[in-house]
C-alpha cells in the first residue's frame, strides 16, 4: 500500500478519478480515499497539517492490516526561476529544506525514473516573490511549497528515507499564485497524471521488492519452522537457534528445511532432557557441514 498525499482537494480530484479511489476507513478528517494498493490523504495547506494527515492515514491503514510501504507527496509548487522550472513541469524532489528550522531531508532515490530533479524549500507562509523566497535561507530555493517537509518529517518516522518522496508540479512563478484557480490546479495535475502515477507505481514496486529481498524462508517454510518449535516446546533461546539453523540449511542447500523439521516435529519430546537431545540432533541435521 502506498499513501499519496496532497494538500488540496483540487489536487486530489484528478488522482481520485484516475485511480478509482473510494472513501476509506475511520474518521471523516483528514479525508482518506483508498483503492487497489493505493490510499490518498488530503491534508489542507501547511507543513503541520501535512505531517498530521500522513500520520493519521498511516495509523488508520495500519489498523486495518494494510501497513503502508511508501509515501508520496504530490501537488503544485512555486518556482523561483520560471525559465529553468516552467509552469506544468514535473520534478522529483532530491532535497527538501524545512525553512522554519533549517533541517534538510534527502530522499534516498533508489528507483529509476526519467523525470528531472530539483531541490525544494518548504515555507510556513505563502511566498509572493523569488526575492522573498531567497531571503533568510542558506541556499537559494529552486522550488517552494508549504507541505513537503511535513510529509518527510512524519513519513520518515514510519519508513526509511528511500520510501518517502515528493513529486512536484510547477504551478506558478511566485508572483502569480493568487491567480491559480481550483480549475487550473485540476488541469495542471491532470496534465501531469501519467508522470505521477508512473512514479508512484515505480515507488510501490521498489517498496515491494525491498520487502521480499531480505526474506529467507517462504510462508510454508516459516509455518513448518513454527510447528517444529511448538512440537518441541522450545524456549525463546532455543527457538532463535533453530530459526538460524533452518535459515542456514535453506541458504546452504537451496532447499526447504521443512522435511527435516517435520521429521522432528512428528516425535514430540516427553521431558526436558529429551527436548534438549532432540534439538541437538535437529541442529546438527540442519547445520552439519
Amino acid at each position: 500500500m502506498i499513501i499519496l498525499h496532497t494538500a488540496l482537494a483540487a489536487e486530489a480530484r484528478p488522482l481520485i478519478r484516475r485511480l478509482g479511489l473510494k472513501p476509506g476507513p475511520g474518521a471523516p478528517a483528514p479525508r482518506l480515499m483508498v483503492g487497489d494498493g493505493t490510499a490518498l490523504v488530503v491534508s489542507g495547506t501547511g507543513r503541520v497539517r501535512a505531517a498530521a494527515a500522513v500520520a493519521a492515514a498511516w495509523t488508520r491503514l495500519d489498523a486495518t492490516g494494510h501497513a503502508p510501504s511508501a509515501i508520496l507527496n504530490t501537488g503544485l509548487c512555486g518556482a523561483a526561476d520560471s525559465g529553468r522550472h516552467p509552469r506544468g513541469s514535473v520534478f522529483v524532489i532530491n532535497a527538501c529544506t524545512d525553512t522554519t528550522c533549517g533541517r534538510r531531508y534527502y530522499p534516498d532515490i533508489l528507483l529509476r525514473h526519467s523525470l528531472p530533479e530539483a531541490g525544494l524549500h518548504t515555507f510556513d507562509k505563502v511566498i509572493h516573490s523569488p526575492e522573498e523566497a531567497r531571503s533568510g535561507v542558506r541556499t537559494a530555493p529552486e522550488l517552494v511549497d508549504m507541505e513537503a517537509a511535513g510529509v518527510f518529517e512524519a513519513g520518515t518516522l514510519f519508513l526509511p528515507a528511500s520510501h518517502v518522496h515528493a513529486l512536484k508540479i510547477v504551478g506558478d512563478a511566485l508572483t502569480d499564485a493568487r491567480f491559480v484557480t481550483a480549475a487550473d490546479v485540476e488541469s495542471l495535475i491532470d496534465d501531469a497524471i501519467e508522470s505521477i502515477t508512473a512514479f508512484a507505481a515505480a515507488l510501490r514496486a521498489f517498496a515491494a521488492s525491498s520487502e521480499k529481498s531480505g526474506r529467507v524462508l517462504d510462508e510454508s517454510e516459516e509455518r513448518a519452522l513454527g510447528e517444529a518449535m511448538d512440537a518441541l516446546r522450545l524456549t525463546a533461546t532455543q527457538r532463535a537457534r533453530l530459526s538460524a539453523a533452518a535459515r542456514h540449511y535453506r541458504l546452504l542447500h537451496d532447499a526447504p528445511p521443512s522435511p527435516v523439521l517435520a521429521a522432528f516435529a512428528a516425535r514430540p519430546p516427553k521431558s526436558k532432557n529429551e527436548r534438549a537431545q532432540a534439538l541437538d540432533r535437529l541442529l546438527h541435521a540442519l547445520n552439519g557441514v
Partner: peptide, 25 residues
Amino acid sequence: RTVPISHYKDIFNRPRQEWRAQKES
C-alpha cells in the same frame, strides 16, 4: 545527478537504510 548536501553523515549515517538496494546501485 549532483545533489549538494551539508555533511556526508546526513546521507551516510541515517537509520533504517535500504542496504541491499543501495548496494545494487
